[in-house]
């Protein structure tokens, strides 16, 4: 643990410090949005959004390196793809009477396919595994500012609309009867989830981002009495998992993404076991 703290302070390993800071800052958005995803049971929607991100990243890389649009960072492509996917999924989820799962599954795979094709046509510039499973070397100072911006947006909207979002998440029909625009709030939740997913793809990758979105909230949910408590608990859990995961990966020279996810998964199992024991 001592070496880990030393590494965080060392000027030669700025990428490591960035990874820790990004994880720590993103824990706020992840804790808050993960709570909604778990409480509303929409992790498969978030999963589809996460996989569509690869399409945006691939397109961004292609535009930058092959077409020559040098200012177009792949993160912009990722953000656009995630927001578009959230809109399509949200509208399907709101309006489709049936086959919603088929449409979402198709979108999930199509996003990945588009991304892999673009990456295949942009050889030499990117290793797809970095995006699929995360690579802390990819994190830059710009990402830190983006996460700070996201935290402010997420926390601001949730503070302003907490009661409406609670009502829509708990009982959509009743919320509509109380005059709320439930479709708008549903879309808002999905768009915020999309933005949160995009920024954490850097740390744990597309394949594992859903685990880091849902496991801290699931751990907090085993003990929380209210959505507020669950958000706070999920934020603290996420911070703990990222810190512990990065420390272990540094000490044992392991890839950080999988270690963070395993720490989260083991913690969830312990939380479930703890709840069972407490019930006896």
């Amino acid at each position: 643990m001592f070496e880990f703290i030393e590494a965080l302070r060392h000027p030669d390993v700025a990428f490591f410090r960035y990874a820790f800071l990004l994880g720590a800052l993103a824990s706020i958005s992840f804790g808050v949005m993960g709570t909604y995803v778990v409480a509303r049971r929409i992790s498969y929607l978030a999963g589809a959004i996460a996989h569509c991100v690869l399409g945006g990243i691939g397109a961004g890389l292609y535009l930058r390196h092959k077409v020559g649009i040098s200012w177009f960072d792949p993160i912009y492509g990722a953000i656009i793809a995630a927001l578009l996917a959230a809109l399509v999924i949200g509208l399907v989820s709101i309006h489709a009477r049936q086959r919603e799962d088929t449409v979402i599954g198709a979108l999930w795979a199509t996003g990945m396919a588009v991304g892999l094709l673009f990456i295949a046509k942009t050889p030499g510039y990117v290793e797809p595994m970095s995006y699929l499973f995360g690579n802390i070397l990819l994190i830059s100072q710009t990402d830190l500012w983006l996460v700070i911006g996201l935290d402010l947006v997420v926390v601001g909207i949730v503070l302003l609309c907490y009661n409406q979002l609670l009502a829509v998440s708990f009982d959509q029909e009743f919320a509509w009867l109380r005059g709320l625009n439930t479709e708008l709030y549903t879309l808002l939740l999905l768009l915020l989830t999309a933005l949160t997913v995009v920024l954490l793809v850097r740390v744990v990758g597309i394949v594992m981002v859903i685990a880091l979105l849902t496991l801290p909230a699931a751990v907090a949910g085993t003990f929380a009495r209210t959505l507020r408590q669950m958000m706070l608990g999920a934020t603290l859990c996420c911070l703990l998992f990222v810190t512990l995961g990065l420390a272990l990966s540094f000490n044992y020279d392991l890839p950080s993404g999988p270690v963070i996810i395993l720490v989260a998964a083991v913690s969830y199992l312990l939380a479930l076991a703890g709840k069972k024991i407490a019930a006896y």
Partner: peptide
Amino acid sequence: FPVTVLDVILM
């Protein structure tokens, strides 16, 4: 779903 009785009624 984590919500208290009073929060439900306040809806």
